[in-house]
Structure formats: structure tokens, C-alpha cells
Design a protein around this nucleic acid. Structure first.
Lengths: 195, 195
DNA sequence: GGGATCTTGGAACGTTCGTTTCAAGATAGG
DNA sequence: CCTATCTTGAAACGAACGTTCCAAGATCCC
């Protein structure tokens, strides 16, 4: 029968994710991918198709592996869940290996990538996921009497979801982490029950 | 003496702004600019320098011509000024000639453009301008007793500034205008004096 | 109007782009 | 071990990239 692949497509895709995440799709060449993965062009095209399909696969992979949404979705503590979500988000955005990379989803919004309906579908899906997760957490907070009487979980979820995009964007321009922390804390405090 | 330019560099730069605004710098070629402006490559390079300098000039021009900040800065009505600012922003982002283009400043955050210190300086400067304008408007609102007692103009300005980035991003992915309006209204209501 | 000086048109520069091609190499079933 | 089948390496593809060059054209001062 046939030969098998001499590399791990999964590990390779992870490397590609980092390239597209940091540099964007337009400024990342096939040569960059070849250099970073050590793969040959033939293997790349045989495995993933073209550059565009590779980007889509990387974006899906990013959503699965790098999204911090999972933790929020499974955290029913209410406001503390939201606070921790944003705290971890800002930490990831501003320090460590991925500092200054922003969010691959947020970045995709600003580029020409989203002209592709498949890409736009991922962006919309992910935004809805974030909105829903925040909404659920806020409902949970309301149930636990953590919210102000006049707070509306629905609207607050929308606001916080857009706020996350703002955090992602500004972090890519090197925004100060503490400043972002303070801003997010203020937004959360705004819906919290007054002391 | 010498010849004069056979075109209007000002009008040309406006055309270039639209190209970079809509498509981004990486996916806009010199050929695109030549086609859109009708200029020759020689005239382009003699007038503006290279592509990168042209982008910087276009970004500065965008800030001067297209930013809606001026209205906010000169509006001392308090909360209504902020409401109108966001209303106009969303309208520009979602309908008319520039619908789906997002904000050139927000877009620049997500790309590789901001590797250039000069570009990043523009982004930071503009973010500070937005933050300051919102802060001033909120102080004005506080003075006019439009704010809730426990509202903090400083924090609220930070939140709303990040929110604007979120609006810009999501609008580029075709977000619903009414949905954005509702979200922004909720964020503003959160700091307003309760009825 | 002569001539110095800048602008313009258009071709060409070398490089890099994403993609394709094909022979050589590797694998697993018979 | 043979061979069908897939994978890999390396070269090459045409197109597009940003930029440069230079002759031809246009302008204002003297």
C-alpha cells in the first residue's frame, strides 16, 4: 500500500496557528510556513490544500485550542467567573509567549480574511459563543444575588463581549496590562450589586 | 524654473485613504493605488516616498478627516454628546459608503502595521484622544447631574473607549446596527442617573 | 523663447508570491 | 521481494510585488 506521512499534521498546524496569529494571513508567506514547520511545500499542499484552506484550518484550531471560553462556560460562580476570565485573558495578551499577539479572532475581524464566508461564519459563531457564555454567567450571578437590581444580563453580556474585542485590540498595540485590568474591573463593577 | 504637479496631492491622498481603510495595507498593491488614483508610479514615489510612508500619510489623513472625535470634543452636553457620538459612529460603520470598513485605526491595531513605531504612536495618540474626549464629556455629564452617584468618569471613559474598538471590529464582520445601538445604549445607561 | 528644473509615462529591475510538477524515496500488503 | 500507492524533495511556474530608472513632456523665471 501507500506511504504514511513523515510528520505530525497536528503539531504542524499548531505551528501554523502561531504564524497566522502573530503575523496575520496576508503578511505570512508559504516560505515562512515552510521555514517554521520544516515541511516541504508538497507535503503542505497535499495535506491542507492551499494557503487559504490552511488559514481556515488554523483558525478553527485556534478556536479549539487557544480559546479561553471553555473555562468560562463551565464556571457557574457568576461574577467571579467573569472576572477570572478577563484576568486570564489580559494576562495571556500582555505577558508570556503570546504577548502582543492579540486574539486571532479579533485580528481576523480587521483584515480581509473575513471576506471569506467560511471565515466570517467562524467569527460570528465565536462571538455568539462569547456572548452566550457571558450571558449565562451573568444569569448565574443574578441567581446568586451578585448583580445590581437594575442590571440587565442580556445587555451586559453584549457590552462585555465587545469589551473583550477592545482588550484584544489594544493589547496588540502594547497597552498596559494594569490599565486593562482596571478598565475591565470597572465594567464588571458597574453591573455588580453595590456594597 | 521647475514644472508643477499635474494632480492634486490632497485629493489623491483621500483616495488612498479609502483603499488602505477598506483593504488594509498588506492587501493593497501599488498597482491598486495607480489604478484608483490614475497617477503614475513616478508621481507617487516622487510625492509620497514609498508604500509605507504613503500608508503613514494616509493614516494621519484619516485621523484628521474621518475621525468623529472632533464633534465629541466640542460638545459639552454631557451624556447626549456621548450618545450622539456612538450613534453616528455606528451609522457610519454599518450604512452608506463606508459600511463594513470598520475603523482604519482599529484595523491598524490588528495588523502588522503597528510594528512601525510611527504607526503605533498614532494609534496610542488617537486612543488617548478618544479616552480624554469621553472623560471630558463624562465630567461634563457629572457636572450636569446626569450621572449616577457612584459612577466614575475615569473608569467609564476607559470602558467606553474599548467599547468603541469593539463596535468598529464587529461592524467590519457585518454586525447588525440595531444590535450595536442597543449594546452601546446599555453601556451608557449603566453610568446614567437612575430614573 | 531659451533653458534650467521638476513631473510624467512606461518599461524594466530583481524579488517574492502561491502553486504546480515530477522524479526519487518510503511504506505496507501480497 | 515486488509493486502499487502515497509522500517527499527540489526545481520551476507565471504573476504580482515594491521600487528604480530615464527619456519625453510640461512649467516658470530670466
Amino acid at each position: 500500500m501507500a506511504d504514511i506521512k513523515h510528520f505530525d499534521p497536528d503539531a504542524t498546524l499548531d505551528t501554523v496557528v502561531r504564524l497566522f496569529w502573530r503575523q496575520g494571513v496576508a503578511t505570512t508567506g508559504i516560505q515562512d510556513i515552510v521555514n517554521a514547520t520544516g515541511l516541504n511545500r508538497s507535503s503542505l499542499y497535499a495535506t491542507y490544500g492551499g494557503k487559504h484552506e490552511l488559514y481556515r484550518a488554523a483558525l478553527e484550531r485556534y478556536v479549539q485550542d487557544r480559546s479561553r471560553l471553555g473555562l468560562l462556560e463551565e464556571d457557574d460562580r457568576g461574577l467571579p467567573a467573569i472576572t477570572d476570565f478577563f484576568t486570564g485573558l489580559i494576562e495571556t495578551r500582555c505577558t508570556g509567549e503570546f504577548a502582543g499577539w492579540g486574539c486571532m479572532i479579533s485580528n481576523a475581524h480587521a483584515g480581509t480574511e473575513n471576506a471569506d464566508p467560511a471565515v466570517r461564519a467562524i467569527l460570528d459563531r465565536q462571538h455568539q459563543r462569547l456572548r452566550t457564555a457571558l450571558h449565562t454567567a451573568l444569569l448565574s450571578a443574578q441567581w446568586q444575588r451578585q448583580l445590581a437590581e437594575d442590571a440587565d444580563p442580556d445587555s451586559a453580556a453584549d457590552v462585555l463581549a465587545l469589551l473583550a474585542h477592545g482588550v484584544n485590540l489594544r493589547s496588540r498595540a502594547g497597552a498596559d496590562a494594569q490599565q486593562l485590568h482596571r478598565t475591565v474591573a470597572a465594567a464588571i463593577t458597574a453591573v455588580a450589586r453595590r456594597a
